[in-house]
């Protein structure tokens, strides 16, 4: 989706938050357009795609309701990631006993296989998804936020309310586990 806000990058998060606090729902639409892809991507990597739209909606509704409680609008993105992580965490607890994300991925992959040249790429996607699923939720969260969403460690520490040292440690262990898994599957890194 082309974000309308891309044409107005000078509008800061804090400015948009202020507009929302005045009751301007169109301003909230700009915030949604600015961040929906990041939220969607993070939720997908953490929870899979089965109820992705519901989770995205849950995140943005929580954001809308909680905006008056946001003390520092300049830290909106950190706060948004925190809510995203909370929604993902709640979802994980609810479905801890249900089918794994692997089934969802297989379903997704089946729909996509149309070209033999894509086969290896799909295989690697499958391995990465399996590798992520093998990680603990805490390690997966740090790996997704740092290596896929490209967030700095300091911001991840603020999002998860952890010391930076803990984030580093989790990232180290997450990568080690991922590397081990991929090498066991025959991938040479």
């Amino acid at each position: 989706m082309v974000s309308g806000d891309v044409a107005n990058p000078q509008l800061s998060d804090a400015h948009l938050v202020e507009g929302c606090l005045k009751g301007d729902r169109q301003t909230f639409r700009l915030l949604y357009q600015r961040y929906q892809h990041k939220v969607r991507s993070t939720l997908y990597q953490l929870c899979g795609g089965s109820v992705l739209d519901d989770l995205v909606q849950d995140v943005f509704l929580r954001v809308w309701k909680g905006l008056p409680k946001l003390k520092n609008p300049q830290h909106f993105s950190t706060w948004l990631y925190r809510i995203t992580w909370n929604v993902a965490s709640d979802r994980r607890k609810q479905f801890a006993q249900q089918r794994s994300q692997l089934e969802t991925l297989n379903h997704h992959a089946d729909l996509r296989i149309s070209d033999v040249s894509d086969l290896m790429h799909l295989h690697y996607q499958d391995l990465v998804q399996k590798g992520l699923a093998e990680l603990s939720f805490d390690h997966r969260t740090v790996l997704v936020l740092h290596d896929l969403e490209d967030l700095p460690q300091k911001q991840i520490a603020e999002i998860l309310q952890l010391p930076v040292g803990t984030v580093k440690s989790r990232l180290f262990h997450a990568r080690a586990a991922m590397r081990k898994f991929l090498e066991q599957q025959g991938v040479q890194l």
């Binding site: 969607r40 795609g49 990465v128």
Partner: peptide, 12 residues
């Protein structure tokens, strides 16, 4: 490797 082979997010 992870970035290149990260499963694509379903379209919005």
């Amino acid at each position: 490797f992870i970035r290149q082979n990260c499963p694509e997010v379903p379209p919005t």
